[in-house]
Design a protein around this nucleic acid. Structure first.
Length: 569
RNA sequence: GCGCCCAUAGCUCAGCAGGAUAGAGCAACGGUUUCCUAAACCGCAGGUCGGGGGUUCGAAUCCCUUUGGGCGUACCA
């Protein structure tokens, strides 16, 4: 077996593509089929097991070019195929012109050996070789606690990063801290109002309508007073707001950091928006755009020239009071990622309510020589929580809207991350809080974790009660595995690297969550049909290898989505 | 008004770079435990892929149109 191979699928795809391409060539040589430029030969797994292990629709794709009925051409190709040195045992033409490949079982046994060879590295790919990718997610305003949208974006972003890493990309996880601008201004005003209310009496000070109304603001004010007293009463409002905001901001950021850590997310970079202004990069960016004719001045403000960038309208970069907009800072931020830090690819996770910003952001990168597809924005739909069959808006604990902290307390990290990664990012997500905590067969989290615990228990008992441990792979003969449950399970395990590839390509880690549920299902079926303990040695050892390989894959996927793989339940 | 997203089994969702008889989980119904964890397994059901039109050998998938939901359209972020 090729030592550098990552995936049996890869190998089989290559074999089939070569066999088909060579057959086309042979037919061209004997003039039975006209020579044409072949498109990429797609190899897929047919829906029906009866249609073979793999199939290709290449003949139908070129039917028009070669001016032949697909079935006729397929028959000619099959006759011309050279199958030596491949897993392919039988080839048939079927349906409107599919070519179906039936493989001998050695590919499954090789797949099993591959898992044992790679262990926890099974599933790793090199599709992202030498590509540096920045995944930016959550990036919530540090003006309050994290909410459900942040929770979904967090789970998604973290898992996208993990999937890309598994696929071989050089991944940086990043949090963009919006620690300046209007929201922070409002934050300061809110803190100031609470501060004054505490000291002068609530009725004496009006709280701004559009301020942050949360309890946490009041708590910050109280804490500040107990630490530093009432000295700020003497300060100007501007100074007061600034001091209060700069007091509370680091506290909030630390809380966010701790909360995300509890959620299983660790960032490589915390990037401050404020630092972009302080370093002069925002000004530099606006200057660059102006120098290259991408801005116009009107009504005292500096506008980004929308028409020149293919946008519907102009956008303000610098307000008529001289303060740059969020967009200006965001352009500078992305310029920093691409130009200053040299990322090849940047992925941003945004709630669907920001979709209007996508085209602007992509277009605004063009002047810096950044192609549109270098910036990828994954939009995710927002979350609806259900409890007792009804939409749940309020936390049980605080009576306020449900925060990430509430969610972790109510359902735990594993269930939260699992459910957020069960659906594609573009679908609206209904989160059933009751289901997430229920210890029943309705709950998919337990279903998967139980499979892992069952395996660990089996391995443990074999060792403790029978003194049996897994032998060296070379001394085990997997060919004694012939039951349909055994073969189905191996087949499922063999798909893993391919699932990683597809998940990375589509930026959809939810594929892997659904995949691991399939693995668990196949395992449970196997477990009910085949005994490991108590059967004769060669078969027991082969089954133990299969069981251990299943453990490796389940653990591998759960690690990837940062969910615990318990050894006992 | 204009733009974006969504619509598939009773419920929650896959499938959508066009492909063979549209899949899974849950719920419902019927079975399985002297035996490695029954948080499991096996079986049985369940559909005008929102409606209409088009493109072609072939459409849940692509195009047009229509309906119903969500969102965006700030010198907010």
């Amino acid at each position: 077996m090729n030592k550098s191979m990552n995936s049996i699928y890869e190998k089989i795809h290559q074999q089939i593509k070569k066999v088909v391409a060579d057959a086309f060539l042979a037919c061209a040589n004997n003039k039975s089929i006209p020579q044409v430029e072949l498109p990429e030969i797609s190899v897929e797994v047919p829906r029906e097991r009866g249609f073979g292990d793999f199939s290709t629709n290449i003949v139908m794709q070129v039917a028009r070019q070669i001016k032949m009925p697909p079935r006729k051409a397929a028959e000619l190709l099959i006759q011309a195929m050279d199958l030596t040195g491949t897993y392919i045992e039988k080839v048939e033409c079927a349906g409107p012109g599919f070519i179906n490949f039936y493989l001998n079982r050695h590919w499954l046994y090789d797949a099993l050996r591959l898992i044992q060879e790679k262990k926890e590295h099974y599933g790793e790919l090199d599709m992202g070789k030498n590509i540096r990718v920045n995944v930016e997610f959550v990036s919530a305003n540090p003006t309050g606690p994290l909410h459900m949208g942040n929770a979904r974006g967090g789970a998604l972003g973290d898992c996208i990063a993990s999937v890309l890493k598994k696929a071989g990309y050089d991944v940086t996880r990043e949090y963009y801290i919006n620690d300046t601008g209007n929201q922070i201004e409002k934050f300061g005003i809110s803190l100031e109002a609470r501060y004054l209310q505490q000291l002068l009496g609530e009725e004496k000070v009006a709280f701004p309508e559009d301020g942050y109304h949360g309890e946490d603001i009041i708590q910050h004010a109280k804490d500040y007073i107990s630490k530093y007293g009432d000295a700020l009463l003497e300060e100007t409002p501007e100074k007061r707001r600034e001091i209060l905001a700069q007091y509370a901001l680091p506290i909030n950021i630390d809380r966010i950091r701790e909360m995300l850590a509890a959620y299983g997310i660790e960032y490589d970079v915390w990037f401050s928006e404020r630092s972009l202004h302080q370093s002069g990069e925002v000004d530099e960016t606006i200057e660059f755009l102006t120098d290259h004719g991408y801005t116009t001045e009107k009504e005292g403000a500096i506008w980004l020239n929308g028409e020149k960038l293919g946008l519907e309208k102009d956008e303000v970069l610098v307000r008529n009071n001289g303060v740059p907009t969020y967009l200006a800072a965001d352009i500078a931020y992305h310029r920093n990622k691409f130009v200053k830090r040299g990322f090849d690819w940047c992925i941003n996770l945004w709630g669907a309510d920001h979709h209007g910003h996508v085209a602007r952001m992509k277009a605004a990168m063009a002047p810096f020589g950044v192609a549109k597809d270098k910036l990828e924005v994954v939009l995710f739909q927002l979350v609806r929580l259900y409890r007792n069959g009804e939409i749940a808006r309020m936390s049980k604990r605080t009576g306020k809207s449900i925060s990430l902290e509430d969610l972790l307390e109510e359902v735990g990290r594993d269930a939260a991350r699992f459910f957020f990664n069960l659906k594609t990012s573009g679908s609206h997500l209904d989160f059933d809080l009751d289901l997430a905590v229920s210890q029943s067969n309705e709950n998919p989290v337990y279903y998967v974790q139980y499979a892992h615990a069952r395996i660990c228990s089996l391995i443990r008992r074999l060792k403790e009660e029978e003194g049996v441990i897994l032998k060296d792979t070379d001394s085990i003969n997997p060919e004694v595995l012939t039951e349909s449950e055994e073969l189905d399970l191996i087949r499922k395990l063999s798909e893993y690297p391919e699932e990683v590839r597809l998940a990375a390509k589509a930026l959809e880690p939810s594929r892997l969550t659904r995949y691991v549920m399939d693995v668990a299902a196949n395992f449970h079926s196997f477990y009910n049909a085949c005994r490991v303990k108590g059967v004769e040695e060669p078969l027991m050892m082969a089954r133990l290898m299969l069981v251990d390989s299943t453990r490796i894959v389940i653990k591998n996927v759960l690690d990837l989505i940062s969910i615990h793989a318990p050894e006992k339940m």
